[in-house]
Amino acid sequence: MASALAAASLAGLTAGCDDDKGKAQVAADAGAGDAGPAQPVIGGKLGEAVAQAASGSPAGAAPTAGAADGPPETGVFTLPGAAAALPKDTPYKIEIITEGGEPRAQLAAKIDPKSEQKLNVTLALRMGGPQGLPNLELGVSFKADKPKEGAGAAGAAAGTAGAAAGAAGAAAGAAATKVIAQVTSATLASMSLGGPPKELADVLGKLKGSSVRYDLSPANVASNFKPELPKEADPGLEPVLEALGEAIGLLTPPLPDKPVGAGAYWMVTDRAVVSGAGLPVLRYRVFKVEKIEGDTVSFSVDTRQYAEGADLRLPGPNGDVTMTIDRIESSGKGSFAWSPSRFVPAGGDVSQRVQALLVPPGAQPAAQRSVAQVELTAKLAAPAAQ
């Protein structure tokens, strides 16, 4: 079972490479023809905001796809293009598109660092179509990690960098909160009568005690995710923790430095790594305030991701292989209710899909391409009252 889990996590991304006929069928099934994956469905002003942020254009002047200063038509940035869109020394930037209606309020996190918050997380990660890890139900406990010696100065430096990127400048000098999300239980999301097979239950049980550590800035930006598996756990389970970290990040809203009201939305640009694929991307998230009730803010979020360079290194039977990304499409959606006192929302859901056409070493893009796909879905809910 351990080897099967590891194989699924490492080899799933290159499914559909066996022969030309098989590749054509996989591409057709995935909706990807010679023109590459379908463009993401992010319409209206949110779609315009995504395009504007990708190009650096001011609001109201959406660029033409494929133009020199616009978002890359293939979904793949050149390395200089990615650096121009978001300099390497800039961790993120927050750009308000619309401040929303009245009344407006300044959104700010007010987390008690001594608090513990628990969630049930339903997590699914699919790689290469039907392959992937089974849908899981995770119990997760969130706490502020005890700071290590010298962490305050490092956090202050990170806060200053965030301010330079257009984040909440007033709190820029404050240290980031070190958060640890610890898995307290793990089982299959749906089980036949009698529960999962003992061998699978034993493998999943090793997830208990694993964790994802990350930073939460004063502007509520989650970053620097670090998964940690227990020594006895199957390494093939690491994509589970990567996916958990990605879901947490997607549902943690970076907060603007101006008061906002219902209907407000803003763009957050940062860098991320796709779970299960090890693919660095430039990520654009549009957060929209759907409504505000007391101290609870209901959000929707739309995501668009671009490959940060055309090279993708994948494990192979004889060592790592570097594939060329010919085209890529990645988009996602989510909704959640946020309150200032929580590390993460008490409820919400998110989905994220990446679909790419890859070219093996030495092959011509038009002649030999394979389809790769990764899909992440997550649902967060408060534990049932005991």
Score class of each variant (00 low, 15 high):
204 L>C: 05
180 I>T: 15
250 L>N: 09
303 T>D: 09
115 S>Y: 01
201 A>G: 01
137 E>Q: 13
154 A>M: 07
108 A>F: 12
184 T>C: 05
176 A>W: 11
15 A>K: 08
308 E>T: 01
51 A>V: 07
226 K>H: 09
266 W>M: 09
37 P>V: 05
99 E>N: 05
376 L>C: 07
270 D>I: 02
144 A>C: 07
137 E>T: 14
291 K>M: 01
128 G>V: 03
24 A>H: 13
73 E>F: 06
101 G>H: 01
352 Q>S: 14
360 P>F: 00
83 A>M: 04
39 Q>C: 07
352 Q>T: 07
264 A>T: 06
52 Q>W: 13
217 S>Y: 14
207 L>T: 14
20 D>L: 15
229 L>F: 06
64 T>L: 14
317 P>S: 09
277 A>F: 02
62 A>M: 05
101 G>R: 07
248 I>N: 10
272 A>M: 09
20 D>Y: 02
2 A>V: 11
216 L>D: 04
5 L>N: 05
213 R>D: 06
327 R>L: 06
314 L>S: 00
310 A>Y: 02
86 L>Y: 05
264 A>W: 02
34 D>Y: 04
23 K>S: 15
229 L>R: 09
169 G>A: 10
129 G>Y: 11
84 A>Q: 15
326 D>V: 12
289 V>T: 04
76 V>G: 04
233 A>S: 15
93 K>D: 09
278 G>L: 01
62 A>H: 01
160 T>C: 10
4 A>S: 15
136 L>M: 10
229 L>C: 06
215 D>V: 07
43 G>P: 00
61 A>F: 10
319 G>L: 06
95 E>G: 07
133 L>G: 14
272 A>C: 02
42 I>M: 04
352 Q>I: 03
183 V>Y: 10
160 T>H: 15
44 G>N: 13
165 A>C: 13
58 P>I: 04
376 L>W: 06
187 T>L: 09
97 I>M: 08
281 V>C: 00
148 K>H: 11
312 L>D: 00
370 S>P: 00
41 V>A: 13
247 A>P: 08
119 L>D: 03
206 K>T: 15
170 A>N: 01
52 Q>H: 10
237 L>S: 11
323 M>P: 01
235 P>N: 14
352 Q>V: 01
13 L>H: 08
189 A>G: 15
192 S>P: 00
248 I>G: 10
369 R>D: 00
69 D>Y: 01
361 P>D: 08
198 K>F: 01
316 G>H: 00
29 D>H: 03
308 E>A: 15
218 P>C: 13
269 T>H: 05
303 T>C: 11
339 S>G: 06
129 G>E: 11
317 P>Y: 05
204 L>E: 05
322 T>L: 03
115 S>D: 07
193 L>V: 12
185 S>C: 08
137 E>Y: 06
301 V>H: 02
341 S>C: 00
32 A>M: 10
226 K>E: 13
15 A>H: 15
184 T>G: 06
138 L>H: 07
220 N>R: 15
149 E>G: 02
237 L>V: 11
124 A>E: 01
258 K>H: 01
220 N>T: 12
71 P>T: 04
104 R>S: 00
77 F>L: 14
278 G>R: 03
280 P>A: 09
145 D>T: 11
50 V>E: 03
334 G>E: 14
234 D>N: 12
340 P>E: 04
342 R>H: 10
236 G>E: 10
